[in-house]
Design a protein around this nucleic acid. Structure first.
Lengths: 352, 352
DNA sequence: ATGAAAGCGCTAACAC
DNA sequence: GTGTTAGCGCTTTCAT
């Protein structure tokens, strides 16, 4: 028996030839179908394939079967810790179900996002997990019509009729306000990046509404919104934003005893800038974040925040997508993840 | 002209039929080869393809051409900020050169790493970027022999003859020790996770050697090494490790005026635990990290550390891999990235 | 129980 | 300048 040792890749044909059987038999053995194959032959095939270091070619396989077993994932950034955690959830669930995730980041750029969606379609992914910055319900319907299931997560799109896994930002704002009010704070500030994102507006609405309900109405002059927008490259822009927001806060001589930041990274910037100006946290001023990324626990003082379940969001979105891939006709699912207060060290209780 | 509106995917054949030309013409137009095609026809084809929302099928394309234009990337974790930054560098360079990266994490598990390597080969990636936890020079040679180029980054493998992009950990240890000594510290401590990793041993060696050279020999009782190992899931394990290391440090009544942590996240844990025990940083004790992940700048006080250029490492490894893919016969490249001190707020200068 | 052969979507060599 | 056609590696019907 001569083993082919060419530099070319070993194909099913090579294995068949060396094992002295047909390619059909090799395919049947290697795919572990319950198709009956003589034990003797099966053994020979297995040994030959092993010996020749045969690896099935996904392209041939997928082309023939029409299944890629791939799932495309497009998110604004892979370097932002929140999305890193989402990725971890997605990867875990995908592998568990035998799918391979393909991660790409759009950098918050609509054009790039479009390109990536096209690319994923060319790659024949069976489904797409999308945290979109620009897609419309129309675009999304087209993708679906092209045979690629879509599940939206993180950022909602109005008019989209398919599956979604999102977070209850409004409720997060409510929880945060209630927590601060309950800790005895009566003068609150809200520091945020521009309100051009649904999530930011929703958090603030909840925050404001809950405060009104609690009888400590929010003063609009305590709302400080920056003008710069992040590029999605890393967290640094949001951090710097937090720092300049804190400077504005300090300059405005705002009498608030507690600050709610629109997200954790912004809170980090606020905390650092405050500390540099000799403000002790939480003794002099309390700071609260949103998201509960891993690092919020690592700060000194550890950041009190509202959790947005990132890994869970990734896992759920993946599960929903896989259900959708397996059954195109099931009813659309809309999962709304709930926030929870994560009490740590950056908010103090005011004396009554 | 009747446009086919089946639920099946539109193929080059459908476009050809609707445009009234042969598939060869469609292929030639769509691939923008400089093959001569009548302008009239070219226009018709382009319009038809656009109208039918045609997307070329990568599988057919790759199968025929033998090129996948994909690059596999295997790293221990995608949630660890250092690797997130590496990923950003890789993705950028890949897209720039027209390659698509496929990211997977091994979770520091040798078995999983092996599986992923096999998977990447089945997917016919043209090259592999590997930060390995278990590969031997033999395994790597086999992959290469299978027609898939390999570039090792981050973690070296002894005996490997191919391209590598690594970091000069030893030099990082030297720089750190020199910096601390120059700031007037005479009694230093080194806190680390287990020395089972080359990088940790190398950092410590450099640290120790430079200290000896500076005339402030390191006392081995000031070396505190934990027993737990991280799972690569997130930074939390390293952070907790840092906290318990700090407790040991405190309990040992170690007289050191400065602590070098084996990496930034461990330093975060140390800083927090120290702060909780009313140690002021850097007034009471100085803390220094390694890696310079984005968050080290966001801590309060901002962490003084030694930079390990993460994005650059990703970009360089990608560039080297692409050069290798294009020319199998070029000489192996060995890039050794150099550390730099990043001076921030966590180390104080001792009075003479 | 095994093999022959069609064909998935595409590119490129060859024919006209 | 355009069309025909042979595969790329694989799965799967259909014969045997």
């Amino acid at each position: 028996m001569v083993i082919k040792m060419d530099k070319k890749r070993v194909t099913i044909f090579d294995v068949a030839k060396n094992a002295g059987v047909s390619i059909a038999t090799v395919s049947r053995v290697l795919n572990e179908t319950n198709y009956p194959v003589n034990d003797e032959l099966r053994k020979t095939v297995l040994e030959t394939a092993e010996l020749m270091n045969y690896k099935p070619n996904y392209f041939g396989k997928s082309l023939k079967s029409g299944k890629s077993s791939e799932i495309g994932v497009i998110l604004p950034s892979m370097i932002n810790p929140f999305y890193s955690e989402v990725i971890a959830g997605i990867e875990k669930e995908c592998r568990r179900a035998g799918y391979n995730p393909i991660f790409c980041s759009s950098g918050n750029r609509p054009g790039k996002e479009q390109d990536l969606i096209g690319l994923m379609q060319e790659k024949c992914v069976e489904g797409l997990l999308l945290s979109t910055v620009s897609a419309t319900s129309g675009t999304l319907a087209d993708i679906d019509a092209g045979g690629c299931s879509v599940v939206l997560f993180d950022q909602p799109v109005s008019g989209f009729e398919g599956d979604t896994v999102t977070f209850d930002f409004y409720q997060a704002g409510i929880l945060s306000a209630q927590y601060l009010a309950q800790k005895g704070h009566r003068e609150l500030a809200f520091l945020s990046a521009p309100f051009d994102r649904f999530s930011r507006r929703a958090i603030f609405s909840g925050f404001q509404d809950a405060l009104a309900d609690a009888g400590v109405p929010f003063r609009m002059k305590n709302l400080i919104v920056s003008r710069v927008e992040d590029t999605g490259k890393s967290g640094s822009a949001e951090f710097e934003n937090g720092r300049s927001l804190a400077q504005s806060f300090l300059n405005s001589r705002c009498p608030a005893t507690a600050i709610a930041a629109v997200n954790d990274i912004t809170a980090f910037g606020i905390v650092q800038e405050l500390a540099r100006n000799s403000c002790r946290i939480p003794e002099d001023i309390s700071v609260m974040g949103f998201d509960n990324i891993d690092f919020s626990a690592m700060l000194s003082p550890a950041l009190t925040t509202v959790s947005q379940p990132s890994i869970e969001m990734g896992m759920l979105a993946t599960q929903v997508l896989i259900k959708r891939i397996r059954d195109k006709d099931r009813a659309a699912e809309h999962i709304l993840l709930k926030p929870e207060i994560v009490e740590r060290e950056s908010v103090r209780a005011m004396l009554p």
